[in-house]
Amino acid sequence: MAEIEGIYIIWLREMKRFVRYRSRILTSVVTPLLWLLIFGTGLGSAIRFGGIPGGYQAFIYPGIIGQTILFTSIFSGVSVIIDRQYGFLKEILVAPIARPSIVFGKAIGISTTAVIQGIILLLLSFVVGVQMTPLIFIASILLMIPISVGLAGVGLLIASFTDSMEGFNLIMSFVVLPIFLLSGALFPVTGLPNFLQVTVYLDPLTYGVDALRHIILGQGAIPLHISVIVILVFAVVMVFLSALMFSKKEQELM
């Protein structure tokens, strides 16, 4: 009971921070729209992209949803470093609550904020001319949950190894951008050169984007059930690993 209460209060703080930093909500919607409207339209008119009604813009729409979840989840996870610099992490870590509960509360808090942003994008599907039905809507939300939990786990895991925001650019270049670019958010993952093909399939977000594309556009490169299993395993493993690291490294984190 005390643990559930603890998880809830950490989740609640994440919610309050999300709602109170209004500029964050705004950018989280504007950035993907810029991608869809400018990049999508621009590249869409330069290339022939058959097979999908709505063309290239529609094709990257699930990818951009994946991107939004990726950025929000990893950066919110990494923001634990800021909590640490402000000393607030200490206040949480000296509480008589299990370390995995702290990680879990944080992960579902981050996931909730990422899913809210995803929902906003789903509601804007008309912008790229994609048909949205209640079933697609709900199935997409159900998919976004494990994707965002897993990526939040990645962020928390990075935070447990990093002690200042100086490493922020490194995280951007070596973690976030590769995950985004390799995920097939912007191009089809079939028929790539060998080395690229392998790395694409090593990227967990590939399965997230492909599953979303399956549900939203009705076509994907990987069988849906495989993608779903990979995403679920990824989420469980990441949360487990970051909970383990927080328990192991609690002295260093305080």
Binding site: K16, Y21, Y86, G87, E91
Partner: peptide
């Protein structure tokens, strides 16, 4: 209960 030497508050709460 602990009061740390450095501040440990969240600005936005």
């Amino acid at each position: 209960g602990i009061v740390f030497q450095s501040r440990a508050l969240d600005d936005i709460l």
